[in-house]
């Protein structure tokens, strides 16, 4: 009964309510900058949530997750560039393209384990990055401007920034809900089981690689949808979205917030991006502070912020 009213539960509820109230603040204060920032945070939190599903629950350390962000974004961007703005075409295409790439990349990467897996996912993401750099028609290195946001036939108007923010927030909460459903399903149990003891899972008859691959594809397409949102948000797409440091940032969000925790990636994304924003106001060289901070999190706070909150309640 008291499960929700822990320190951790209260923080999460407060966070979600605060996120829902951002547009209200923006309208009252007349300052639209926080809305832009928080739309970005919500979209990246969704990408981090998708990574958390394979990293936190499945134990697959993918260092190339930003590739799907880019693939989803480019699917929207390229279709828009060719003059088709219908979201009914763009978004399913973004999902399909990222799912298909995750299927191919995952099938190859899952032949390996441990460190190899980290390096191979990184290398394939770099390959996707170079493909985008080579797309001369679509801006190559410089990227391309997307002149119109996805259109949904008048049902929702994404060019309204507040509507768009709520769409992003709803999709984020939707992906957290989906993760919750998946993790507690038989399928999710097998994926988690394969993380703790792959050999034992195989011994009792589960073809774990197939399960892992499915999880990898689900995470990839969820991230692709986040990419479609990102393209609509920035109205711009360039290979920089897929730069390998973006993949690193996603991992940082997951670990900082708390791996294998449903709301961890959201907490991590909010913390990291707000911290970046604050620090970059203080000094131009903010990364000199953030870098060692990652090291400290790794050394002293392995459960992430969510772990600390859960711990605070236990005392």
């Amino acid at each position: 009964m008291n499960a929700v009213l822990t320190v951790r539960g209260l923080v999460i509820i407060a966070l979600v309510v605060a996120l829902a109230l951002v547009p209200l603040y923006v309208v009252l204060a007349g300052n639209y900058f926080p809305l832009t920032l928080f739309t970005r945070i919500v979209i990246l939190a969704m990408a981090a949530t998708s990574l958390n599903f394979i990293l936190g629950y499945g134990g697959m350390v993918s260092f190339g997750h930003a590739a799907y962000l880019g693939i989803g974004g480019y699917a929207v961007g390229i279709v828009a560039f060719e003059g088709v703005y219908s979201g009914y075409l763009q978004w399913p295409l973004a999902l399909a393209a990222s799912a298909l790439s995750a299927l191919v990349i995952g099938a190859l990467c899952l032949r390996t384990r441990g460190v190899y897996f980290i390096m191979v996912t990184l290398a394939f993401a770099q390959m996707v990055y170079y493909i985008a750099v080579g797309l001369d028609r679509y801006g190559a290195d410089d990227g391309m401007t997307i002149y119109r946001r996805s259109e949904f036939g008048g049902i929702v108007d994404l060019s309204n920034k507040i509507v768009f923010y709520y769409v992003c927030l709803a999709l984020l909460l939707g992906s957290i809900y989906l993760t919750w459903r998946l993790v507690n399903s038989r399928f999710g149990m097998v994926v988690c089981g394969a993380r703790s003891n792959d050999r034992r899972m195989r011994a009792i008859g589960f073809p774990t690689t197939r399960y892992r691959l499915t999880a990898f594809v689900i995470a990839g397409s969820m991230c692709g949808l986040a990419g479609a949102l990102l393209a609509n948000h920035t109205e711009f797409m360039s290979p920089a979205v897929m730069h390998w440091t973006r993949s690193g940032d996603l991992i940082v969000m997951v670990v900082l917030g708390g791996m294998g925790s449903l709301f961890g990636p959201l907490i991590g994304a909010v913390t990291l991006l707000v911290l970046e924003e604050v620090l970059s106001d203080v000094t131009e060289y903010w990364q000199i502070i953030v870098g060692p901070l990652f090291l400290l999190v790794v050394l002293f706070a392995r459960g992430g912020i969510d772990g600390l909150l859960a711990g605070a309640n236990r005392d």
Partner: peptide
């Protein structure tokens, strides 16, 4: 993660 921090 730790060495990613070092790169930054």
């Amino acid at each position: 993660l730790g060495t990613f921090g070092l790169i930054l």
